[in-house]
Design a protein around this nucleic acid. Structure first.
Lengths: 214, 214, 214, 214
DNA sequence: AATGAATGAGTCTTCATTCAT
DNA sequence: TATGAATGAAGACTCATTCAT
């Protein structure tokens, strides 16, 4: 049982609607889907690992795919978290006067999210090419909202003259690529590795790269 | 039959060692593995799509996994291509006086590679989490060689004072993230989309971000 | 459904641990293995004959070979039966004063065993050349015990001066060959044939053949 | 390549009608059928072991079963050998005055036959339960002739007052069981083991056991 | 709510056999 | 005569799912 799972468990325990067996099923399925992939994991294996009867899985989740969605969907909803903020500009002005402060907070926040949801995010990334529901759910319920919110933010800092006046989507792409590249390296090399200097260098790179021309 | 497959076919035709049926099997398997994933594709489906008997697959590839590796391994080898250059520094000095020229050439070259090998690269990325052979093969035969070569290149431009003196691996990560982020966006949104202005902006961003401090 | 199978069924019914389907599978498999041999019998055929789904076989027996062993192993254990007697010499003195009495009892007892287990013994004999587990199981758990016990018995009658003082193993071989030759003839010609006169002649032959010289 | 196979090969070489490849096929098939059984041996394995293409087998033998019969049938014919003697009684009187001499000669002759044909005899015994052609061929062409001839012989010695006047088939059964029991023990324990004393004891046993009563 | 035996379609793979070369 | 690629039926075994208990 790894660190991430302790956190997963905590989250499950918060949800009063879940029976004990149900939680065990979700934990076992998460573990296996992450390790072997959805298609290569059998319900039999999940049942054994969860210590329940195979029938019990299907009492709670109509199909195997249902089980997958029950794992991935709530995580997607939680992805929304940090951008659902009312009166955004006020927050930005007060808490993050500079773009780099905002980026730094974003990185820290997503880092925490990833630490808590590593396995589920992994499943999400691994399975998204094969399940259009996942893709649509993500675009419709998450992607659009997040993007439109972040566009606002970028334009906020552009208006303040802090960053270059490229199209907001381009700025987002450049920033997101840099951050996600850092996370990818981190989780591939060593998920526990945590290097604030590395983050500082990255932010410095972003700041310089996005500085207005002239 | 899409564009990419025409190219795949061309490549297959060059290989005189492959029977006609074998080529059909490879084309069909590539198509299906990319679309549904390795584990969710049945050999029966592949046989039908290839217009051969199921037994024929196993005459040429001992197992289904063998078939996967027969598709992915040659592509990995071809990934080495652009970095196997003798007398590298001479090439750099003559052809790419500035770091930005090198990056631009790199992008164009990888773009071409991706256009030709899109499906196989897709399979590779989708399956790498589940097949340690793939991971090991990649690291051992490709990863190490490519990285060590690119480290040389980065240090070459650092020595010339063109880019910041961060650790070479950090420079590589920042650059690669930016480029791969661009490719990811491009292939998710529209594989045919080809925007040289976007590339110029990206290179400009990289140049500014990596400029030596002071 | 033949006579022997009625007896097989009886035995199965005694075993409370077996489900109804499991019994049907064992009966069907026994029938087919005896008739066509293990390798030439398909699990599909067994399932059909047993009136169960093919998957049901594999729920109870992990592999086809497992099924074979589940049929043959219990029979081997029952072969031990007649020689596991405490205080053997007392029994011999009281019940079988003469070697010929002992042989006669042995023949009758084994006859009964064969009548009850004909098919399984047949499978055992047919498959023993191809399955080393069978061979090893037989030698280790049955062969050694039986032989060492029978050596005692032979030496008992040799000590009483009733039979010739050849090596015990030689005496056993000569006796066993004669008896098994009789059984072989009986079951090849007509399993139901039961000729007490033939047995008497055989015992007379053995008695004369093994009489001490001088 | 064992001793027996050298002999098998010799026999094959005598047969001018067999091509080189055909001989290789027969040798390989004999080896494998003996070891794994007919049903569990694939034509692919045979082809590989023989160093020929799979198609070549089917050019010479219409079916796999054909191949089996081509191995076993000639051996059956050779079993007839020692009993196809004209003017039998003359031979018996001259060469084998006593029943025990005849039995001794028989044992030696069959021993030789077995040494030369061990693998094929093994195949024959292993496969006879599953192939009625084998059974019928054996009974019709071999069994009947051999039995009727040996009945004559037994009656010859009974007429001379040397052996007990039981039915000839009973005498044959008792004698054959004893001899075959010896062979069985010999080949199971060690095919090379050759103990003339053991044979003498066996013949002594038979002589005593079959001595006329009174 | 939970079980686990039962299912039969489906899995990957092997088979004996054919046939164009 | 010999080959070996090709076949498709059949092989052992696994799967997600159902249902009586």
């Amino acid at each position: 049982m790894t660190d991430e799972n302790h956190l997963l468990e905590e989250m499950l325990q918060e949800d009063a609607n879940l029976t004990d067996k149900q939680k065990k099923i979700l934990v076992a399925a998460t573990e296996m889907f992450a390790e072997k992939g959805f298609a290569a994991t059998s319900t039999n294996e999940i049942a054994k690992k969860a210590g329940v009867a195979e029938g019990t899985i299907f009492r709670h989740y109509k199909t195997k795919k249902d089980l997958l969605l029950s794992i991935v969907t709530p995580m997607m909803v939680k992805m929304l978290g940090p951008v659902i903020i009312k009166d955004l500009n006020k927050v930005l002005d007060k808490d993050f006067e500079y773009f780099e402060d905002f980026v730094w907070a974003m990185i820290k926040n997503r880092q925490e999210f990833l630490d808590k949801n590593l396995k589920v995010v992994q499943i999400f990334l691994q399975e998204i090419p094969f399940h259009h529901e996942l893709r649509e759910q993500f675009i419709e319920h998450i992607g659009k909202k997040v993007v439109s919110r972040i566009i606002q933010i970028v334009e906020h800092y552009q208006a303040k003259g802090q960053i270059v006046k490229l199209p907001a989507t381009t700025v987002i792409r450049l920033t997101a690529s840099t951050i996600m590249g850092y996370f990818a390296a981190k989780y591939i090399i060593d998920p526990k590795w945590n290097d604030d200097e590395e983050i500082d260098q990255m932010i410095h790179f972003l700041k310089k790269g996005l500085i207005p021309d002239e």
